[in-house]
Amino acid sequence: MKTTLDELQAFATVVDTGSITAAAEQLAQTASGVSRALSRLEEKLDVTLLRRTTRRLELTEEGEAFLCQARRILAQVEEAEEQMALRRQKPAGRLRVNAASPFMLHVLVPLVAGFRERYPEIELELHSSDQIIDLIEHRTDIAIRIGTLRDSTLHARPLGSSRIRVLASPAYLKAHGTPKDVEALQQRSLIGFTQPETLNLWPLRNTLGDELPIEPAIKASSGETLRQLALSGAGIVCLSDFMTQADRADGSLVQVLVRETLEVRQPINAVYYRNTALASRITCFLDYVAECLKAQVWTQQ
C-alpha cells in the first residue's frame, strides 16, 4: 500500500507543532485520527519515525531523513496547486507573514480587508515579533523588516521607507519645557529601545556629528510600547513616521528640535528565502502592500 499525502501532512505537522493534539487542531482533525495516520505511515515504511514519551515526541534518525523527503513532496504538491490556482487567476494557500508589532498594527492590519477582498482564497497568518526571527524555523513565508538588512542569505524586496523624528506629547512639553537645543535633552526624560543600540542613535545634528547617542531613562523592546509611553507623557522619543503619522496629525505628539533634525529614513523590506518560482500568493501580497504604501502620506514626507 502506498503512502498518502494525508499521512505525510500529519507527520510533518506533528513535527512542526510538537504534539499530536496541536497537529490535530491545526489540521482540523481529531487527535486519534492523526495518531492513526502516523501509525499507518510507520507500518507502511516499516520504521519508527517518532519516539513517543509521556513528555514529548522526538524524531528518530529515520524520521529525520524521511521528514526532508516528506517536506519536499508536500511543497511540490502545494506548488502544483498554486500553479493551477494562478491559471484561474485565483492565488490560494496559506501565507505566513511576520512583522514587528508597530508595523503589523499600524500598516499591515488596515490593509488586510482589502487584500482579502481581492484574494479571498489566500489564508493569511499574521505573526508579530519585535525580534528578528529565523524564517525557516518559524515556518514564515515573508518577514517585513525595518532598517538596514544584515542577513545576506535572504532575498529582499524594497517596499518603501519611513522617516524618523524626535517627538513628545504636548502635556510632557508643558510640564517640563520644550528643549531649545540638543544639549537640553540631557535634562529631559528620554525613551529608547532595549536593543539594538543603533535605534538609540537619534538623527540630531550636534557638536559630535550627525547622530546623537542617547541614554534612555525608560527602555522598551517594542516601538509600540515606546509610542504609548510618549503619548502618556512619559518623555521624549524617536520613532518612525509609519506609526506616528496619525498622532502628529491630531496633535497627540509633536516634533521637537525640528531645525536640528536630519532627514533620516528607515528602509522597509520584505524578506524571504525563495528566489525562483516565487509562490503566487507571496507575489500577490508583496505587490498589494507595495501598491498601498505608495499612497500613504508618511512615505512621501
Rank of each mutant, 00 (worst) to 15 (best):
T53K: 06
A246E: 13
R88P: 01
G33H: 09
E62M: 11
T244Y: 03
D210L: 07
T13S: 03
E260S: 06
L105Q: 15
T140F: 05
F115T: 01
T244K: 02
R96A: 03
R165Q: 04
L59C: 04
I146V: 06
T261K: 04
T140Y: 10
A168E: 00
V289L: 12
R116D: 04
V297L: 08
A31M: 11
S222A: 08
P179K: 13
L212A: 07
L111F: 08
P170E: 00
V289D: 10
I146E: 02
I136K: 13
E42H: 08
M84S: 09
A217D: 14
T261W: 02
L154M: 08
A246L: 11
R259S: 12
P216S: 05
E117P: 03
W202N: 07
D141F: 04
D134C: 15
P179Q: 15
V271N: 07
E215L: 12
C292Y: 04
G18C: 08
L45D: 06
K174H: 12
K219I: 14
A28G: 14
M1C: 03
V254I: 06
W202C: 05
T3W: 02
W298A: 04
Q131L: 13
L159G: 03
E78N: 10
E291V: 01
T299Q: 13
K174G: 00
T148L: 14
C292A: 12
E42G: 09
T207C: 08
A37P: 02
S189Y: 08
D287C: 12
M243I: 02
P170S: 05
D287A: 12
T21D: 14
V271C: 14
E82V: 00
D210Y: 06
L229H: 05
D181T: 12
G251C: 01
I268D: 02
D250K: 15
Q255K: 11
T54R: 13
R274Q: 10
P158A: 12
K180W: 07
P170I: 00
Q228V: 07
I214Q: 11
Y119P: 07
K90G: 06
H138I: 00
T140N: 07
D287G: 10
R51Q: 11
E79I: 03
T54M: 05
A92Q: 13
T48G: 14
T140R: 07
V14Q: 07
E58Q: 14
V14L: 14
E81V: 01
C292F: 09
H106M: 12
S19D: 10
G18S: 07
V166L: 08
L190Y: 03
W202S: 09
G114Q: 09
E82P: 06
C292V: 00
H138S: 08
D6K: 08
F285W: 15
G93C: 05
L8P: 01
L229E: 03
E291Q: 13
Q9C: 02
R165A: 05
A113N: 13
I73Y: 03
Q26W: 06
L38A: 04
T13D: 02
P179E: 06
R188H: 15
E64S: 15
K2Y: 06
T207N: 12
T21Q: 15
